[in-house]
Design a protein around this nucleic acid. Structure first.
Lengths: 279, 279
DNA sequence: AATATAATTGAAATTTAATTTCTTTTGAAG
DNA sequence: CTTCAAAAGAAATTAAATTTCAATTATATT
């Protein structure tokens, strides 16, 4: 089964005038044609349905529905939705745009995030006696998520926005510090990184800017995408928040898989405890 | 990004017996199904054509032909990606699978979430004198995000995990209570909903189960998807967390757009304050 | 356990879409 | 001009999808 678009392209000179109109329309709007019936396409191309069907028979043994199916196999989604969210957009358009950009952000994060950094971070955490996590603003939410995830599998994490308290904790070897900072320029995080290094405590940073001050002060950098960075009207950096949570989830997943049965067992215990005592 | 096979995989437990037969047949022979009509598939699966069509309607807005078209689009890509994350999967496969299911969750949430519920919730919040938010476990993170978002635009929100404190607050008319609970069965949230109603305080709930106890006790229900619900090994309900954050973001967006210039002005002020004093 | 109620299912009827047939139109050759 | 063949559309036909509805099965309630 070879490409139908290629077929059209190479055969188009042999088509009759009306058939050519249809063929050209398909070449110009393959994605839209997938959602049309023969009548609609006929109208759009300015011919009759019979012509559409005749052309379809040339292109596919399964007639017009067969053409749509083949088009669907070879056409990828168009990127027209990747425009900024506009205050005048109705909610349903906002939804579509958001869906698209979240998908895009995760996709990009999959590219920027280094597998090796994830495995090294997981390794560090598993070897650590104590783990401290810090983030400010939206990043505090990510740090809290990180804490929750690891406590559930029996790996306690201290997470607080009290910088002094964290500084007090990260003075002991065997400790690991996890910092979350979208920009990588948060002053508080930088100070904590300095404290950590003074005491040979390794620093794992989650940030979107691998060239940021914080990234340079870190031992392992988990870099995520931030597509909304340069937009005029950012809703609330939600996509960047999601990218960070996603990075944490991969880290968590990798950590679990290093010792799968044991960790899943602990996860199950956690659920059972809740189920038994709080339901 | 929209995958029928993943949809089937994650929804199959919710299908009826006959629908499940069809669903399983599609999972087992996606390529062959593309070349069948509804009758043939019905015979192969041992059900009636009506059942095939009914299932098709669940899976695609374009009915059975739509299912075939989508199958065609995705069977050329690696059809192992819609399956559960497996501990033996290498990290790059996990990344792809996760990307896939996050996209799917947002897409599904766009379908389940009612625009009207969002606008009503935004309206309630804008008219409220005081707003309280509560969530436990992963949902506390969502409540915290909600708080952060609205404080940034000059709408203070009280968010704490101290149920007594919340109960103390929601006894005054003009107050709104926002509850986050994935299952909709969290006891603490139910109690708070009861307190709220005793004092005529409206309750907005974010949950994945519109038939849950909490949903029934709520004035406005913001329903999100939870595709991982039925999986044996859920990483950490991260997709459901993302769906909740996404719902909050839409709510926030809608709230801003009700009074765009003013709210964006406040958002800018918030950023300036941070910039001036903490950078 | 008996009954009521709701959900599920398939057969038949209906609607919609695709296809074929047949007639009209177009255009090139004599 | 006329003739003929190819092309195209209108209408008729066929096939497919979908809906309706009645029968059945499952679920909840007393």
């Amino acid at each position: 089964m070879k490409s139908i678009l290629f077929s059209i392209h190479s055969q188009i000179t042999s088509f009759s005038k009306s058939e050519r109109k249809v063929a050209q329309y398909i070449l110009d709007h393959p994605q839209q044609v997938i959602g049309m019936n023969a009548d609609t396409l006929a109208n759009r191309a300015g011919v009759s349905a019979a012509t559409v069907v005749r052309l379809a028979k040339i292109l596919s043994t399964d007639g017009f529905p067969g053409v749509k199916i083949q088009l669907s196999a070879e056409t990828k989604m168009d990127d027209s939705l990747y425009t900024e969210v506009d205050p005048k957009d109705p909610l349903n358009v906002v939804k579509q745009k958001m869906e698209f950009r979240i998908g895009h952000t995760i996709e990009q994060t999959n590219l920027t995030l280094k597998d090796k950094a994830v495995s090294q971070a997981a390794q560090l955490i598993s070897e650590a006696d104590d783990v401290y996590a810090y983030g400010l603003g939206a990043s505090s939410i990510v740090a809290a998520d990180f804490q929750q995830k690891f406590i559930r599998i029996g790996k306690p994490v201290v997470q607080t926005m009290d910088t002094h308290l964290i500084a007090t904790g990260i003075v002991k070897s065997g400790t690991v510090l996890v910092l979350v900072s979208n920009t990588g320029e948060t002053l508080e995080s930088q100070k904590l990184a300095d404290v950590a290094h003074e005491h040979d405590v390794p620093v794992i940073t989650v940030t979107h800017d691998e060239k940021s001050t914080l990234a340079k002060k870190s031992d392992i950098v988990l870099v995520h995408d931030d597509s909304e960075e340069n937009e005029k009207f950012r809703t609330a950096a939600t996509t960047s928040l999601m990218a960070q949570l996603y990075v944490m989830d991969l880290l968590y997943y990798f950590y679990i898989s290093m010792n799968f049965d044991e960790n899943v067992g602990k996860l199950k215990e956690s659920r059972d405890v809740i189920q038994k005592h709080f339901k």
